[in-house]
Amino acid sequence: MNAPASSTQGAAATRGRIVSLNLARAQPLRAGSRTVLSGIAKRPAAGRVPVHALGLDGDEQADPTVHGGLAKAVYAYPHEHYPLWRTMRAQARVSLWDEEAVPGLMGENLTLTGLLEADAWIGDVLRFADCALAISEPRYPCFKFEAVMGFKQAAKMMVASGTCGFYLAVREPGSLAVGDEYRLEPGSREVSIDQLFRARTTARR
Rank of each mutant, 00 (worst) to 15 (best):
N2G: 02
P4M: 13
S6V: 12
G10V: 00
A11P: 14
A12Q: 14
R15S: 10
R15D: 00
G16L: 01
I18D: 09
S20L: 09
S20M: 11
N22F: 14
A24E: 13
R25F: 08
R25K: 13
A26W: 09
P28H: 01
V36D: 02
G39D: 06
I40H: 03
I40C: 05
K42A: 01
P44Y: 04
A46G: 08
G47D: 13
P50R: 14
V51T: 06
V51H: 08
V51Y: 07
A53F: 01
A53P: 00
D57M: 00
D57R: 02
D59K: 08
E60D: 14
E60F: 08
E60Y: 09
D63N: 12
D63K: 00
T65M: 04
V74G: 11
A76W: 10
P78W: 14
H79Q: 15
H81K: 03
L84S: 09
R86Y: 03
R86K: 12
M88I: 13
A92P: 00
A92R: 05
R93N: 08
V94K: 12
W97Y: 10
D98K: 13
E100P: 01
P103I: 05
P103F: 02
G104W: 02
G104E: 06
M106G: 11
G107H: 13
G107Q: 11
L110I: 06
L116K: 14
D119S: 15
D119N: 09
G123C: 05
V125E: 15
V125I: 13
F128P: 15
F128S: 05
F128D: 10
C131W: 10
C131N: 07
C131G: 03
A134Y: 04
I135N: 01
S136I: 07
S136Q: 06
E137M: 07
P138G: 05
P138E: 06
Y140N: 00
F143I: 01
F145P: 01
E146Y: 03
A147P: 09
A147L: 03
M149A: 08
F151T: 08
A155E: 08
K156N: 10
K156D: 13
M157L: 09
M158E: 09
M158N: 01
S161K: 09
G162E: 11
G165A: 07
Y167E: 06
E172I: 05
S175N: 08
S175Y: 07
V178R: 09
G179Y: 00
E181C: 08
E181I: 01
Y182R: 05
E190A: 03
E190H: 07
V191Q: 15
S192H: 02
D194R: 13
Q195A: 15
A199F: 06
R200P: 00
T201C: 09
T202Y: 11
A203N: 01
A203Y: 08
R204C: 00
R204H: 08
R205C: 01
